[in-house]
């Protein structure tokens, strides 16, 4: 495989996008786990399917449609649940299926042969284009700058929102920025592993990292490294056994998590009691 990486651009792109996606995932994934926004993220991912459908229908790059839908749903869920006091959980469920339904509708009314949607549903790291790589790099850059330049404020907001508000930290602005970053990350990941598998890539590397550290910054950094390793391992296995890359990456990640959690629990019982 190593010679193949030097030989084929598509493998180089796959390798690079694994690294770039892991950076966004490590940081944003850690945050959504700690802020308990995993359901919201699932909702955003599925809502963006509507945007992909719309993209096909009006003839623009589908991923731009996904961006718009993802950002609208992220901010919309937050706003609506505050205004009308609906459980945000139920609202996420509605956005989730409404987005999917809209996607199906748009694709049905798009003239001509229906496009192949599998790459959006299940992702394909091997078909990532150079323009996607540039987009991912930009989003990584935004996330890294925004989070680390205000790191202490973010940490305070993640840990205790009410106290942060009392001492005057603009928590509402931070929340909006966070939701937009979650939306951007998810859309980037759709290219890689697809709408259905996005959540795994956001939750598994940080969960493994959480087994190893009690420090927020370290958890983010470890998640990034774990993400890169798992993506590349998954990519290798999918190349080797010729199975779908998205699913292989997720299954490799899941297996790694359960094995590490098991090892940790064994280690704990030995030392603890």
């Amino acid at each position: 495989m190593i010679e193949a990486i030097f030989k084929y651009t598509y493998l180089q792109n796959a390798f690079l996008s694994a690294v770039l996606a892991s950076i966004a995932c490590g940081i944003i994934g850690t945050i959504i786990i700690e802020k308990k926004l995993v359901m919201l993220s699932g909702g955003i991912a599925h809502t963006s399917f509507g945007g992909i459908g719309l993209g096909y229908y009006i003839g623009i790059e589908p991923i731009y449609g996904a961006f718009v839908f993802a950002i609208i749903s992220a901010l919309g869920i937050a706003q609506v649940s505050k205004k009308i006091h609906t459980y945000s959980d139920a609202l996420i469920g509605m956005f989730w299926s409404l987005g999917m339904a809209l996607g199906i509708l748009f694709i049905a009314i798009t003239p001509g042969y229906p496009p192949d949607m599998t790459s959006y549903l299940f992702g394909d790291i091997l078909t990532v284009s150079s323009s996607s790589i540039i987009m991912m790099s930009m989003i990584d850059l935004i996330i890294v700058i925004v989070i680390f330049s205000l790191y202490n404020y973010w940490k305070a907001y993640f840990f205790d929102e009410e106290f942060s508000k009392v001492i005057g930290i603009p928590t509402e602005i931070l929340e909006k920025i966070l939701f937009i970053m979650i939306a951007l990350t998810i859309v980037v990941l759709i290219k890689l592993v697809g709408i259905i598998l996005v959540i795994a890539l956001l939750t598994i590397p940080p969960s493994i990292a959480k087994l190893l550290s009690y420090n927020l910054m370290n958890i983010m950094l470890i998640s990034i490294i774990v993400g890169v390793v798992l993506c590349i391992l998954g990519l290798y296995l999918s190349y080797r056994f010729d199975i779908a890359s998205g699913a292989t990456i997720i299954l490799t990640s899941g297996a790694t998590y359960f094995i590490s959690a098991f090892i940790k629990s064994q280690f704990k019982t030995k030392n603890g009691n």
């Binding site: 404020y153 940490k155 840990f159 930290i169 603009p170 420090n215 927020l216």
Partner: peptide, 17 residues
């Protein structure tokens, strides 16, 4: 369960608007 140590919780009090 948030990954933050006691000292960092207390230091939060020093943040300003």
């Amino acid at each position: 369960k948030f990954p933050i140590r006691v000292l960092d919780v207390i230091l939060m009090g020093k943040l300003t608007k």
